[in-house]
Structures are given as structure tokens and as C-alpha cells.
Simulated assay, not measured.
Amino acid sequence: MLMPDPGTLRKLVGEYEALVARQAGSGAVKADRRAQDLAYTLCVSTGTRDVNLALRKARSHIAAAQGPVAPIPLRPTGPGATEPHDTGEAVA
């Protein structure tokens, strides 16, 4: 499954949580349209149907993206070296 950029997820989660907190503080019974749109976007982005599960998956993806980054392997050069092909497979 494709996952959105962790920075994008971070913004969505932050905006959603801020809206929900503001609505809870004001005693609002129903989420406003923007909160509903954010919940929908989070669900679609994480492949879920429940905003609470979407938030958990988004936080998990954000945390994983902050982990160590694997080094990029160097391409061999010289005679007999392979060149990358459009599909990402090596061809001789």
C-alpha cells in the first residue's frame, strides 16, 4: 500500500487533533466539516475506515520514518558493471 509523506501525515494529524480539542473545549456535539474532511483524508491515506485506527497507523508511520535511514548502495563502475533500467532492475 502506498503511504503519504510522513510530513503530510504529521500535518493532517496535528490539524485534526487541534480541531477536535478546540471543539471539545467549546462543547460542540458534532464535528465540523473540516474535521470530517480531515478524518476522511486520514482514513484514505492509511487504508482504514475508522479515524482512531487511522490516527494510530499515521503515528506509527511517522515514527518509523524518523528511524535510522538505510544507506544507499553504490553502483558498481567499470567493465562489466550493470546499469539501472527504467523498471529498477539491473541489466548487463
Rank of each mutant, 00 (worst) to 15 (best):
D5I: 05
A70F: 15
V13E: 00
Q23N: 11
S45Y: 03
A58K: 00
A18T: 15
T48D: 11
V69R: 15
L55G: 03
Q66L: 11
R56A: 07
D50M: 08
A28K: 11
G14V: 07
P76D: 07
T41K: 04
A35Y: 02
D32L: 11
D86N: 03
L9W: 01
H61P: 03
Y16K: 02
V51K: 01
R33W: 10
L12G: 07
G47P: 11
T46I: 08
V20L: 07
P79Y: 06
Y40I: 08
A65Q: 10
R10L: 05
P68S: 05
Q23Y: 12
H85R: 14
T87W: 02
V51I: 08
G7S: 03
M3K: 13
E17N: 07
G14Y: 04
T8R: 00
Y40H: 14
P84K: 03
Q36D: 09
I62R: 03
L74W: 06
T77Y: 00
A58S: 04
A35D: 06
V69K: 15
P68W: 01
T82P: 14
A18L: 11
T8V: 11
A65E: 05
D50Y: 05
T46R: 05
P76E: 12
L55P: 04
G78A: 06
Y40L: 14
A21R: 15
S45L: 05
A64D: 14
V51N: 03
L2R: 13
Q66Y: 00
A58F: 00
T41A: 12
V91F: 08
H85P: 05
A92F: 13
L42I: 13
D37V: 10
R49F: 06
